[in-house]
Design a protein around this nucleic acid. Sequence first.
DNA 1: GCGACAG
DNA 2: ATCTTGTCGC
Length: 224
Amino acid sequence: MVDLFSAASTEDAVRLQMRLAPLVERVPPPGFAPTTATGLDVAYAEDSTTVAAAVVTVDLASGAEVVSASAVGVSDFPYVPGLFAFRELPTLLAALDRLADPPQLLVADGNGIAHPRRFGLASHLGVVTGLPSIGVAKTPLGRYQPPADDRGATSPLIDGDDEVGVALRTQRGVKPVFVSVGHRIDLPTACRYVLRLARRYRLPETTRLADQLSRRALRSSRDR
DNA sequence: GCGACAG
DNA sequence: ATCTTGTCGC
């Protein structure tokens, strides 16, 4: 398989994003009806170069955890807003490879097409794996109007002249999350899955579990 | 030129 | 992202 996620420089990384962005599909595949969702997250060591990636699959009906996997790696690429994926993607893909059951829908901790080149981490993950993916970010890249206070309320997330995603209120009176299309899904469908996964907390259960697992994986690799 | 800027 | 305990409040 061709390497679609490594770059030797920030300039190369930007070029790669521009080349891959047209491959993003903003509609779901025919008959798309996932029974599970797989959350992904990464924890960083103090040296800021050792990373632990975790992936956790959750049953959409029951919310129960199905399978999980993790991987520890080294991230050489610096953190640059807009080039975030080049820092986390390699280790995330390693963790995905270790998953016993194939994912049906990815939920990334970052943006999809809500990105300067419409190719954030969630889109990159989706295009590289071919899987439907959703971006759920805790803070927005662009500007937005606060949505209404009720759970499920949305307001547009704008970049330039485009609506690139929404601010979605997952709990009443709590700061919204920022949802955007990653790959092979549409925005309303993406919001439905995020709401379904965020029954109790602000963040979807998938990303909460992946966050916890990534921290445990980092600690256990350090304490050894 | 200045500020903003996912994790 | 990470450094970090208890505490106020529903």
